[in-house]
């Protein structure tokens, strides 16, 4: 029964990673850049929800909505101010800029809200679903996390595959020049991608802060790096890959914590990543890039 408990809580944690990884992978797919400030959007999202809940006592769903709106606005603004001017620059310049944005957000948060952690009150009542005479217990927040992740994945897959904007996004990720020949506004499509990624980061932020109830300026960096790993794990640029990578990462991490060692769990996760990349350099579901000559 322990195994199943670990497995389910691993899937819960993995769902959060998957939501964050989606942001990395979609932005990479379309803008061909690694947005290292993505993790810090989570932190901002968590602070917004925290203030909304504890200072203004708004209902939980409103706090989530507010957090999503703020993060979307932030994501679009960052893209416009920091990344768009570098559209034609070397990818290393963009990467360094992203790291700069990340530090800017972390230090900005420290200045505004100090570095001392704030207690986040869960958006749903604490407690757990007890099954098999209490042998198996799954916390409500884990259930909510898994359900949210499933819903978002279904909605996102539908959006990407069946809407005009989704088709434009796929076209841009394949060939921006050809996409603009079709009349697709590439800059707008990139903005939409950042908006979606940041909105998902806000949802992940609230779920994460409800599970690990402390909010502080660098809280986004570790989940950010883990989600980035998840995206690489699954194959960066691939949406099902982000889901698979996130879930695997969450499960491996939780099982390693449960059976091997809490301190070593991250090392084990990254060791598995290294092995996967050695065997399949593009990630589990990554596309093989063939160059035509």
């Amino acid at each position: 029964m322990y195994f199943i408990t670990y497995l389910i809580s691993g899937i819960g944690l993995g769902s959060v990673y998957a939501l964050i990884a989606l942001g990395y992978t979609m932005v990479y797919g379309i803008a061909k850049m690694l947005n290292f400030a993505h993790g810090d959007i989570i932190m901002i999202g968590a602070y917004v929800a925290f203030f909304a809940l504890s200072r203004f006592n708004v209902p939980a769903y409103l706090a989530v909505l507010l957090s999503v709106v703020v993060c979307i606005a932030l994501g679009i603004t960052i893209e416009k101010l920091a990344y768009k001017p570098l559209r034609k620059a070397a990818s290393l310049s963009v990467l360094i800029t992203a790291i700069g944005v990340s530090y800017f957000l972390e230090n900005g948060a420290q200045l505004l809200w100090t570095s001392s952690p704030k207690m986040f009150s869960s958006i749903i009542k604490s407690g757990a679903l007890e099954l098999f005479d209490g042998q198996l217990s799954i916390s409500y927040i884990t259930l909510l996390t898994i359900a949210t992740c499933i819903l978002i994945m279904i909605a996102l897959t539908y959006f990407i595959n069946n809407t005009k904007t989704g088709s434009a996004m796929r076209a841009c990720s394949e060939d921006k020049g050809a996409a603009s020949l079709m009349g697709i506004n590439v800059n707008r499509t990139i903005s939409i991608t950042f908006a979606i990624g940041s909105g998902l980061a806000a949802v992940a932020a609230v779920l994460l802060a409800s599970t690990y109830p402390s909010v502080y300026p660098t809280m986004g960096s570790m989940p950010g790096i883990k989600a980035f790993t998840a995206a690489v794990f699954g194959g960066v640029g691939s949406i099902p890959g982000a889901l698979l990578g996130g879930l695997l990462l969450g499960v491996i991490e939780t099982l390693a914590k449960g059976y091997i060692s809490t301190q070593l769990s991250d090392a084990i996760v990254f060791a598995v990543l290294i092995i996967v990349l050695l065997l399949k350099p593009t990630g589990i579901l990554g596309k093989k890039k063939s160059e035509k000559v």
Partner: peptide, 24 residues
């Protein structure tokens, strides 16, 4: 004009190397 506006005024291009969207 912005590149994405060109097609709306009545110019369409068949680019060199086709550049069709292979995964659609």
């Amino acid at each position: 004009m912005a590149p994405e506006k060109i097609v709306s005024v009545g110019l369409a291009q068949v680019p060199e190397g086709r550049r069709i969207f292979a995964s659609q």
